[in-house]
């Protein structure tokens, strides 16, 4: 029978964590990358104008629903809710937590006209950070990621290279200019996106983060 350890993320076969840094002769890598697989992800649909819906979410998750476009609530690494559209959110948690989150939401949102769909398996997350992280994204993404326009806590559905991604900025250090992003990518596109990042980041130096 199938053992849990045989569960495989879309980039697992690349063994990224064992890879040597790219970028010969550069003193330090401008980019750090890691796959953050198997995050629990639940698509939540409902009416942001319905107070019962907002209260239900807060009750179930302990964090509020982000009703402002392109923002996230919660803490990176912990439970978060990402805005996907005016009636659509993505609840994100650690691995193997989807069933529990859904049951809490179901209880809290009973009798409301909502939809909850477990899409944990749909996307993996590539974490991209470093002083040149923003510039690498600029090579393939038309969103203005300059600190004046975009920062931690903001999230956009957009295109990166030739594929669709959900881009969530998780950190920015003004002093060093270093930024960090979670890039949610549909699993069928994950290897393409990884190859794209590897190619685009080469000139800045690319190191794997465990």
């Amino acid at each position: 029978m199938v053992k849990p350890f045989l569960r495989q993320s879309p980039l697992a076969h690349l063994h990224l964590e064992a890879r040597r840094p790219l970028g010969d002769g550069l003193p330090e890598a401008g980019i750090h990358v890691a796959e953050r697989p198997h995050r629990s992800q639940i698509a939540v649909r409902g009416q942001a104008t319905d107070p019962a819906f907002l209260q239900g979410i807060e009750k179930a998750l302990g964090i509020s629903l982000p009703t402002e476009a392109c923002t996230a609530s919660g803490k990176p690494g912990d439970l978060q809710v990402l805005w996907m559209g005016p009636d659509e959110w993505l609840v994100v948690g650690g691995p193997d937590n989807a069933a529990l989150i859904i049951s809490k939401l179901t209880t809290a949102l009973v009798d409301l006209q909502v939809a909850l769909v477990d899409v944990s398996e749909s996307r993996t997350v590539i974490e991209l950070s470093g002083k040149q992280a923003r510039v690498v994204l600029d090579k393939g993404c038309s969103i203005d990621l300059h600190p004046r326009s975009f920062g931690p806590g903001q999230v956009v559905n957009t295109l990166l290279g030739r594929g669709h991604v959900l881009l969530h900025q998780t950190d920015h250090e003004p002093a060093s200019g270093s930024s960090a992003y979670d890039i949610y990518v549909h699993r069928s596109y994950a290897e393409y996106l990884w190859s794209w990042i590897e190619d685009a980041a080469r000139e800045y130096g690319l190191a794997m983060r465990s």
């Binding site: 495989q8 879309p10 076969h13 393939g140 290279g161 030739r162 994950a190 290897e191 393409y192 190619d199």
Partner: peptide, 18 residues
């Protein structure tokens, strides 16, 4: 740009691709 060779167009892979 870099949309050449293997990156000319995304290759979508199923979980059993490899």
């Amino acid at each position: 740009g870099r949309n050449v060779g293997p990156l000319a167009d995304p290759v979508r892979m199923t979980p059993m691709h490899h």
